[in-house]
């Protein structure tokens, strides 16, 4: 079979793939009649109910029209809380991790000194970090975002360190020979070389954060998708768990499609 180009028929194949998943799902229900696997129609119904039921008290803020609209949908409200936390943890970790990674990649002594710390950070269980942050800083937004950042910083630092260590000195020499300013050297020569490493760490980090944020909400917050899972789990409401799961996956896919991929394409178009 002739391989397809990246743009050729990609949309149809993706739709077909989703239809296949739905068909297999319904086939399993029809064949085995499992107790805790609801029909997709039941999941869709749960989704509609959750999306049209007003959110918890924490969503009701009379500050502006945005909150007024959001507060009418519990699902949107809880997704909003989770996304905000994930974004705050993600950006904090990207900034701190990138600075650490660049320093470790540039200065070997620093790298040797902090190598053990990085290994420790990479191997710390996310749940342990979350529990400790909640114990030390209370069940607060700050504790949750800090826990997210602590979990992701070592990963970003390691990946960016690799990039910083492989910066081409020849190109930096060009910038120096032509007396480019520090700012311009960073923007046009240094950072573009690090971009693939930023993207790799952003992708890996985002995948990590999506998972951890739900666990941390589950154990220590009173809103957000993770908290909703705790309630649905207690009440055995599987269709609601699935409705939230699919909504969450949809958001992650939208971020990948409309933010990550276009950024990646723009920055790597010279390789094509």
């Amino acid at each position: 079979m002739r391989p397809l180009s990246p743009t050729e028929g990609g949309g149809w194949i993706r739709v077909l793939s989703l239809v296949a998943v739905a068909a297999i799902w319904e086939l399993i229900i029809w064949a085995f009649e499992p107790n805790h696997l609801p029909h997709l129609s039941a999941v869709a119904e749960a989704f509609w109910t959750l999306a049209t039921t007003p959110g918890p008290w924490s969503c009701h803020r009379d500050t502006n029209i945005f909150w007024e609209i959001i507060s009418q949908s519990g699902l949107a409200c809880n997704l909003g809380f989770t996304l905000f936390r994930a974004a705050a943890g993600f950006f904090s970790a990207m900034i701190i991790g990138s600075v650490i990674g660049i320093l470790l990649g540039r200065y070997r002594t620093l790298d040797r000194f902090f190598d053990g710390w990085i290994v420790l950070g990479l191997n710390l269980p996310a749940l342990v970090v979350g529990i400790l942050c909640y114990v030390w800083f209370g069940l607060t937004e700050f504790a949750l975002i800090l826990a997210l950042a602590i979990n992701k910083v070592p990963l970003v630092a390691v990946m960016v360190r690799e990039g910083a260590a492989s910066i081409q000195p020849d190109l930096i020499q060009v910038a120096k020979a032509f007396r480019m300013s520090w700012f311009q050297t960073m923007r046009k020569v240094y950072l573009p070389q690090l971009f693939p490493y930023f993207m790799a760490s952003a992708r890996a980090g985002l995948a990590l954060i999506w998972k951890i944020v739900l666990v941390l909400e589950f154990i220590g917050r009173s809103n957000g998708v993770g908290f909703q899972f705790q309630i649905f789990f207690s009440n055995f409401e599987i269709e609601k768990v699935l409705a939230y799961t699919f909504s969450f996956i949809a958001v992650v896919m939208l971020i990948e499609t409309f933010i990550m991929r276009p950024m990646d394409r723009k920055a790597t178009r010279w390789r094509m």
């Binding site: 020849d170 190109l171 060009v174 020979a177 020569v189 573009p192 971009f195 920055a267 010279w270």
Partner: peptide, 15 residues
């Protein structure tokens, strides 16, 4: 600043 042409072109591949 002088003009410098290196042994290899050393153009930034992303520009």
């Amino acid at each position: 600043p002088l003009g410098y042409m290196f042994q290899s072109p050393r153009l930034m591949p992303w520009l």
